[in-house]
Design a protein around this nucleic acid. Sequence first.
DNA 1: TTGTACGCGTTATCAA
DNA 2: TTGATAACGCGTACAA
Lengths: 333, 333
Amino acid sequence: MAQDSTIYDIAEKAGVSASTVSRVINNYPYVNKETRAKVLRVIAESNYIQNDSARSLATQSTKMAGILIADVRTTHHTEGVYYVEHEFSKNGYSCLIYNTGTDSEQQAKYIQILSQKKVEAVVLMGSVFQNVTVQNAIMICMPDTPVAICNGYLDGPNIYGVTSDERGGVMNAVKLLADKGRRNIAFLTNKLTPSNQNKVDGFNDGLKLYVKGGKEEVVEIQSGEVSDYEEATRRLIQTRPETDAIIFSEDYVAIAGLHALYEMGISVPDQVAVVGMNNSRYAQISNPALTSIDNMLYDTSLIAVRNLLEVLKGERVNHRMSIGTNIVERSST
Amino acid sequence: MAQDSTIYDIAEKAGVSASTVSRVINNYPYVNKETRAKVLRVIAESNYIQNDSARSLATQSTKMAGILIADVRTTHHTEGVYYVEHEFSKNGYSCLIYNTGTDSEQQAKYIQILSQKKVEAVVLMGSVFQNVTVQNAIMICMPDTPVAICNGYLDGPNIYGVTSDERGGVMNAVKLLADKGRRNIAFLTNKLTPSNQNKVDGFNDGLKLYVKGGKEEVVEIQSGEVSDYEEATRRLIQTRPETDAIIFSEDYVAIAGLHALYEMGISVPDQVAVVGMNNSRYAQISNPALTSIDNMLYDTSLIAVRNLLEVLKGERVNHRMSIGTNIVERSST
DNA sequence: TTGTACGCGTTATCAA
DNA sequence: TTGATAACGCGTACAA
């Protein structure tokens, strides 16, 4: 490293004390205009850069937040990371990000790392973090750090969940399909996270409510491989040829499904209607364009961060918030 | 905050000195087995957590890396962030991430922030960071911190560029199309980043080399709106009906293009062949599945990080590395 | 308005 | 093998 100059170095050059330099840097009011100018000049000349470690130590505050996400690559929460970082940044916080994977022990480990880094707030992206191992880690390692969980809920005095009503969203999707005369609707989901379980519940609710005599048909795909999504779609059609609509737990899975249907020569939506979830940017450009349930990632992300900021300001915040979903209709239904 | 206990607290409880505690924590060899055990026990009981700010200050090392990305949402570099974080994590580094936007002044600002955070390495994701403003910021704020730029190049003694041969990749795509008898190939690109400029160059090279008498036809789309991608595709076909192949600068744009062609009733690849770039996970599930140039994001990301780690170890590393691209053929050609 | 002196929690040097 | 003690760079009462 080049010998990063310290406030002492520039104090010396400016002929003042270190504390004065500190005051200038931190915009303290009572400092002589000229001395301030001088100090500022010396700082500029010396390309001095503040040491945040020292500052954090002295201040007892890092102005850092932590973001945990299972896998930046594949989840639609990736976009959420952007919103979260952006909102934190706007409020003077830097963000540490970690890909934790889906193993809860690993996730807990990262909670500890974050507490070691003394982050002042944490956002958990996705319902995969909704498990007791994580909950305990929070309780033990950061009982006083506000934690938000996007699209999930976790019990704890310092934990704030923001969810969208995915259950209701899927229910409405069933209604939409039923209104269009579909009777044999299936639900195809990848790994059953708590969030996906909610969707399944909404699916069953919807069937009972809107489709008389509709048999439930829920398929879970364990793996995360595209080929398995396609294969599951194919098999569904083969084993249950009367299927006239499929709701998928995610747009990505739905688009894989569209692809499989396309290759089977099945026309969408004439023969089979398809609904996705997330209203991702790919939904509008798939062939055909995909009807999708918008689970409001932008809003939930933003609210999560804002809640945390409120808590940090000492405000009271609801531990559980939920916002409604919209269904965006396109050509696939 | 709960009063985070310090090494002094646990030193007292264990009846030893703080230095001994420190030694235990850091796995120093010469410490009595029993004292170590005792200290460890007390630590476990007191849910003590190390303070990284203090540690960094004393050690003069943060074990943090910085990742800068223009926009996590829309670029395919998002996946790269995952690889980069993962590789750093594996080597004991934590990652600070910032969404900088595409404005170079803003980008430079984040370079400064990172230097303030005393990160020990930086990865710039994408050729959007290939500009003099950023270069200067690096020179001034972090002349001794190794910086890697993915998919781009920047001059500087501490800067390491890792690119894939996108120019050659596009050239090969032109050849592929020419071999299939296509004569009126167009190139459709979004914002002309240095990376996209390379692709355009490769396109022109390819035309000269493989398509006798082929007129160049390059369309740049300034905005990032899907509707504009579709519109541009439509207009291209209208103004140049003889077009029998289109290469797009990104899969996402290509898929939007596929959608537009689909809606125009143009058959792919019968009437128009389509090639994308990035070989993203959506390429294989689009309708039809998209032939795409794989620009090896995984490899470039990994190499970028490994280069940085090598430099940190004091090894010499090439300032400029390039790896070959593959073209993955699917149904759209 | 400015400077002195101390503390923040660790690590590192030196003696013991 | 252990314990004082002095850094690390900065913020901040307190005194001047």
